[in-house]
Amino acid sequence: MRALLAFLFTRKRALVGFLLLKAVAVLVNGLVRGTAEVWGIGILALAVYAVIARFAQAGRVLSIWAVTLLMLYEAAGALLLAWSGLRDAPGMALIGLVVAAYLVVGALVVFASRREG
């Protein structure tokens, strides 16, 4: 189990996972709501997150702090959505809890790697 966690949670993989989760969220939001404004805001947010993640991958300390806060913010949102849908859709709530846990652990890994080169 420790080897699997070490494989999944490196700085690069945590950042890629974060961007993939955000891309899925943008896609789902765009398809559900279907307006140009939702698509535009989602794609713009994804682009900004990608730039910050790229700088964090390069080891920029300020970007590492920023992406850590963004990951924790997204995890809090996933946790709140999971909690609110616990009675109505327990399967979706479980997925939300897994996403929130992944983002929290990923944020901790990214933050802990801030001293690495």
Rank of each mutant, 00 (worst) to 15 (best):
E116N: 14
R13C: 03
T10F: 06
G40S: 01
G91C: 08
A78F: 12
I64Q: 02
R54E: 08
V99Q: 12
A75V: 02
A6H: 15
L31W: 07
G77I: 11
S113Y: 06
E37R: 15
L20Y: 06
A112I: 01
L69C: 15
L8K: 10
R33Y: 09
L27P: 08
N29H: 06
L20C: 00
E74F: 12
G30M: 00
L79D: 05
L79F: 15
V104S: 03
I64F: 01
R54D: 08
L20A: 06
V28Y: 11
G34Q: 05
G85L: 08
R115G: 09
P90T: 11
G59C: 05
L70G: 06
V99T: 04
F111E: 13
Q57V: 12
R60H: 15
W65E: 13
A82V: 00
A50F: 11
L19W: 15
V38S: 07
R114A: 00
L97M: 09
L80C: 05
W39D: 00
K22T: 14
V28C: 02
M71L: 04
F55S: 06
W65R: 14
Q57I: 12
L72K: 04
R115C: 04
L5K: 11
F111N: 12
A76M: 11
A14V: 02
T35A: 13
Y73I: 02
